[in-house]
Design a protein around this nucleic acid. Structure first.
Lengths: 214, 214
DNA sequence: GTCTATATGACGATAGAC
DNA sequence: GTCTATCGTCATATAGAC
């Protein structure tokens, strides 16, 4: 139903801005231009609405890892993964913030998802990384910690955009800031894994390719 | 006064676990083993107590950057900075989480600090990085984005420890996990900047040195 | 300074008309 | 399905005894 999707989109923003407890049903209703009672008609309780927002977000997250396969070129696959995560940070910053706040507070609603779905996916993709290491395609690294650092570097462009804008002395990050961030992260990771040349050409090529497929 | 410090320490944990709105004065009072009214006697309002917690945290943050000076060896200085940030993530996870939640929600209480103190400090240290690049000591990088990624990678070990434990299939991160994280981040950054050898000896040396000075 | 008891207001949720 | 009016609960904050 279109109404549910509209309420979820508005609730995502309010939850991102105020946190679960700080968001109120009447503020969400106001954002959605609906009476408060309608939210309860569609979702029952505040917690159930919050869960609907989280589930809506999760569908985005896992699929980003798909380019990481044993046959793929490590540099291209990792660059594509980083670029996809950065694109989400730019296009769905509220989603990233809701997810971050949920993790910060111990993942009360998402614990099971983390221990089952996410853990399985990371185990699978870590095996791919281990294979690349064994074949000497990339330098040795603990694969799960590699994922932790990639998630951190990419999601920080959504979660902590306020801090970045303050440090950069601007009101809001623009397209150029996200491009610089994407290049910075890709270069750190690829050179950190010993799979980027000293020159800058190759990373720029990957960036261009990413922009075409986005 | 000792009472104030004790209340701030307990409040830090409750704010970290539940967020600003989700934390209640009575829960903080319970954690501090004091009647609720005493909190208001010492801090006036919930917002003022929250500000006291934040200010207490800020004193920790900025000083970590001090090893980054023009004369320092880039590899040693950056490794020391990363190790210091990782140590804070391990020893003061609640502080990191309170700070992260404040940023997530747009830094309503900390906006001025970010635009003045933090911005000035980052500008100063970015000039050091630019100097290293000009002298060909490290590969070119946008210095402020380098800081963004280092903050992200180190603070994620405090902020998202729940997610890491779930992915690793353990209850809680232990000393070995933080050590692996520190080595992973240091290697990514140093090799990403072209200042670490292919072998693993040098990073291990820095780790050992860090442990001695910690 | 410390505590109990309470005033005041806002929140989530629902009843019930349309 | 949609909305207005309202109930019960729990939060912050304070009054006032000790």
């Amino acid at each position: 139903m279109a109404h549910r999707a509209h309420i979820i989109a508005c609730a995502e923003r309010i939850f991102a801005e105020h946190g679960f407890a700080g968001a109120t049903m009447s503020r969400i209703a106001e954002a959605a231009a609906l009476p408060k009672a309608n939210l309860h008609y569609y979702f029952g309780t505040k917690v159930l609405l919050y869960r609907a927002v989280l589930e809506n977000i999760l569908t985005l997250w896992l699929d980003d890892m798909d380019p990481i396969t044993p046959e793929a070129d490590p540099a291209a696959a990792l660059a594509a993964y980083i670029a996809a995560k950065m694109a989400h940070s730019r296009n769905r910053p509220h989603a990233s913030k809701v997810f971050a706040a949920e993790l910060l507070h111990g993942a009360p609603e998402l614990g099971t998802y983390l221990r089952l779905d996410l853990r399985r996916k990371v185990a699978e993709k870590s095996a791919v990384i281990e294979g690349w290491i064994a074949r000497r395609l990339i330098a040795p690294v603990e694969p799960r910690h590699l994922f932790f650092t990639i998630w951190a570097m990419t999601q920080t462009y959504a979660d902590f955009d306020t801090q970045m804008a303050a440090v950069l002395g601007i009101d809001k990050l623009d397209a150029g800031d996200y491009a610089t961030g994407t290049e910075t992260v890709i270069r750190l990771v690829l050179r950190g894994l010993g799979i980027a040349p000293a020159g800058e050409t190759e990373v720029s090529d990957i960036m261009t390719q990413q922009r075409r497929t986005a």
